[in-house]
Amino acid sequence: MAIDKEELKQKIIEFATKKAKHKSKMYIKDLYKAAPDASPRQVKNAANELVREGKLEFFSSGSTTMYGVPGFGKSEKDQFGELEEE
């Protein structure tokens, strides 16, 4: 089905931002729910474009990759601190 990409991206970012307040990282499957009419591939492509635009970010558990909204959740800095300047 033809879906406008910008519209899809808008839906995904709205969905993700709402979700992120409770759980800052989500799987690609969770993002499918943002636009049930879109195919998994379309959602994936739109989400990855949002990452390139800096509106979403990746988080890696090593074995899986999740999507997050910048500014939500614990940052690497919260968890591990920053390196001291040498």
């Binding site: 409770h22 759980k23 800052s24 990282k25 558990s61 959740g73 614990k74 919260d78 968890q79």
Partner: peptide, 12 residues
């Protein structure tokens, strides 16, 4: 609370 998000730990 300072280092984790509880829902993520649960989902892991």
């Amino acid at each position: 609370m300072g280092v984790c998000e509880i829902p993520l730990a649960v989902a892991a």
